[in-house]
Design a protein around this nucleic acid. Structure first.
Lengths: 295, 295
DNA sequence: AGCTGTTATCGGTTTTATCGATTGATGTTA
DNA sequence: TAACATCAATCGATAAAACCGATAACAGCT
């Protein structure tokens, strides 16, 4: 068993297509096939079932994947530690964030970049679910989200701030003047909500569920800017964390009178994984941002 | 970077001698030297300092070791999972135990062997410190000890039973008739104690320390049977968990009147490591032993 | 039946891990 | 201090194995 073979296996598992995996690994399909076979021989059990054109994971393959991934990750962590030791000022950051937290991320990126201009940053937007899945595959360094994701033992949660769930309306609309609204008032409004998979959506559904109300969801989208644009037309309303629209001029957020509408924003990262210097430094920036200044 | 190289590095690090490490790895010294060099080149930093005949770890090597070890372990865990999947009834167990817990280990081994006769068992006796060190190097599956080892985040503690620290005396001796003794009475007795590194010894030292007393330690040994033999002569006494001598006919244990002499016996194992079926099964046996029956 | 997309296999090539022998450096001993 | 023993590094040669291209075998699709 060699790291090379584990890397091959991981890619093959993720694509479930040897030809494509081989291409991405820059080796021939023949080589990949042989190396997987060799690994299977050593483990004494097939990792893939070959049925016709397609392959799929065996139970053994499924079990083994986790260890293969962690093994490769440990090797990479070791490599990373030594890179960090030499020069703290190169490297890159892979940040996952939900749209609702971009207002805190932008100033953090700015501040971080001024301190560490050499470090490149990738920001990936997505739903909580998408992002935490990618986090588990070590494709991201950390994720910013409202922590309504199922609390996972392997993950570390660092709270940032909490935000009230609010009704978002266009400035011209009749609702805009209200100081607050009841959940009962909302249920008859035409709503445009974030798609399933967004933590906020899950949270909204749960709140309505708890009060035995069913909202009128006319529209769903996984693109929050689009959502806000739609609300800006005045035809729809939406429900988001109050902070999400704090810098939108044409929209207003109206507090909802209901229990437990407080969402906790947090940094989510993995336990038992080497934390790069750059990641530590970024956490530092995030946790020391003056949040009040932003709202 | 390949697992082969990490395995080579680990052995070299542990022996700090390329020639010997190569021999134990069944490769030539030349090969080892080259592979280490290749690894160092890839990591961009030396892992060893070569001064004259000797080598020692660089800071980078020290940092890297941890990851190399965990990486190799993850690969092995993956292998192990699949072996377990196929046939639950082969494999082996590496058990570390302090002498004080052998009375519980023997019946457990007996019971376990009757259920799983194919599984080979190695039992290693030693001090808590020796054993937990070996546990950290993945050389043991678990350790039985009085958990006075420093509580470590990476380790899991499953309590077994608690036992009073007692004065151990020969049956013929004048002390033998006493119902209990005070710590003050003990400080003038000639004592033979377990050597430093034994958790019980650490515990004893702490108890005396707390009461500002200094015991007369005439003799230390790291072999508990020898210790008991010496006590059997009547010239010395010792201090051990009461349960340690529960099946010694010529010795008696006398409770010590003092605060906090209760020691907790526990199974110590590592978090975040694959737990073999055999290990799970053994824990089951240990945790369901009728302890009262043994005392 | 013929086409396409897939994995397995075969034979040959290239890469590289390995070895034995040697060198050079450094403690140790007579 | 000279001879020796012990160690890691290096060199050239060899064996192992990773890799490739071509092809076969197979299954789904038209």
């Amino acid at each position: 068993m060699e790291l090379r073979q584990l890397r091959y296996f991981i890619k093959a598992k993720e694509l479930l297509n040897f030809t494509e995996a081989a291409a991405q690994l820059f080796i021939s399909q023949s080589t990949l096939s042989q190396q997987i076979k060799q690994l299977e021989d050593e483990l004494g059990t097939p990792l893939f079932n070959r049925v016709g054109k397609h392959i799929y994971l065996t139970e053994a393959g499924d079990l083994f994947y986790k260890y293969a991934l962690q093994c490769v990750k440990k090797a990479y962590d070791g490599y990373q530690v030594l890179k960090d030791l030499g020069n703290l000022e190169i490297g890159n950051l892979m940040i996952g964030t939900t749209y609702g937290l971009r207002h805190i991320l932008s100033p953090a990126i700015l501040a971080f970049h001024q301190q560490h201009p050499q470090i490149t940053i990738d920001v990936v937007f997505g739903t909580s679910k998408e992002l935490t899945d990618r986090l588990s595959k070590f494709e991201l360094d950390f994720v910013l989200t409202f922590e309504e994701v199922t609390h996972n033992q392997n993950m570390k949660y660092q709270p940032l701030f909490s935000s009230e769930l609010s009704l978002i309306a266009c400035k011209g609309s009749p609702l805009a003047e209200k100081k607050s609204v009841a959940l009962q008032d909302i249920q008859h409004l035409p709503l445009a909500l974030p798609a399933k998979g967004f933590s906020t959506r899950k949270f909204v559904d749960e709140v309505f569920e708890k009060h035995h109300l069913t909202p009128q969801v006319n529209l769903e989208t996984n693109d929050i800017p689009t959502l806000l644009e739609l609300v800006g037309t005045g035809y729809w309303n939406t429900i988001l964390a109050q902070t999400t629209v704090s810098n939108q001029k044409n929209l207003v957020s109206i507090p909802i009178r209901s229990l437990k509408t407080l969402q906790q924003a947090a940094i989510v990262s993995l336990h038992d994984v080497y934390e790069k210097q750059a990641v530590k430094a970024f956490f530092d920036v995030l946790l020391h941002l003056d949040l009040n200044e932003l709202h």
